[in-house]
Amino acid sequence: MQVSKLLDLYGREGLSPGHSACQGCGATIAVRQVLLAAEPPYIVVSPTGCLEVISTPYPYTAWRVPWVHVAFENAAAVASGIEAALRVLERKGLGRRHKIIVIGGDGGTFDIGLQAISGAFERGHDLLYVCYDNEAYMNTGIQRSAATPIGSVTTTTPAGKRERKKDIVSILVSHGSPYVATASPHLWKDLANKVRKAQSIEGPTFLHIVAPCPRGWYYDSSLTIKIAKLAVETRVFPIYEVENGKYRINYLISRPRPVEEYLRLQSRFAYLLRPENAALLEEFKRWVEERWNQLLKLAAAFPP
């Protein structure tokens, strides 16, 4: 069922308050919204990361739904096991199938967990993999990941990262996933409906959510949603979906805001904005533009 208003989501909380996320944590907003939208019965699997640590300090858990964490690089493999085992248990009358939702950060998705994700998607397990992307290893103190964008300062890229962000969506599309999409928590309705859509599709689906992090992006905790919005409106984080290989841009930003508006709010880009680093800034802009143009072409190849 389509989500059209907030009351459609109210009362379906999967996460309890009292967890240890930082003030203004974008990841928890994203995860809350995913769980509010998700159709039961479901099981959540998390790799190691911020989300796992902030939500389950023994003897407490913020999870109001069944949840499991095993290690950093294997969430998709754990999910494969759960999905397949419940299939046979249902057959034998010893259990019933649940929808499986993996929720991992960019480190556990873009980097160390990619092999297991590749395996799970190739095998075609029926699961939804959600990546909340805060663009670095925040749990260990802000180290660069493959998701860190050009020019961003982390504790392991003190002079700004030189490489582009890995295009995770294309990787999953190449695996033949029936549904891969991006989302932002400021567009809660879009996000919620994408969760529902992904869950309704048999097979491995993927949702890539931008998750601003006040701690690691160095901005005031009240600005999380504003920054997510700017990421979208500057075309830094395009909102689109790929259904059975067909691209569709969900938020066509015809007149993008200047990228600097997004960058200036975050001290992680202070280095990038220095006059002497103009070339790096140009490379950042080129990255944004090239990706957007590529998306336009892909979307044009599949007219609605």
């Binding site: 308050p17 009292g18 240890s20 939500s55 300090p57 023994y58 003897p59 407490y60 999870w63 109001r64």
Partner: peptide, 14 residues
Amino acid sequence: PIVFEAGNTSLRKV
């Protein structure tokens, strides 16, 4: 090491 009381972080005040 299993927490059976779902969502009991609500007992913690932050």
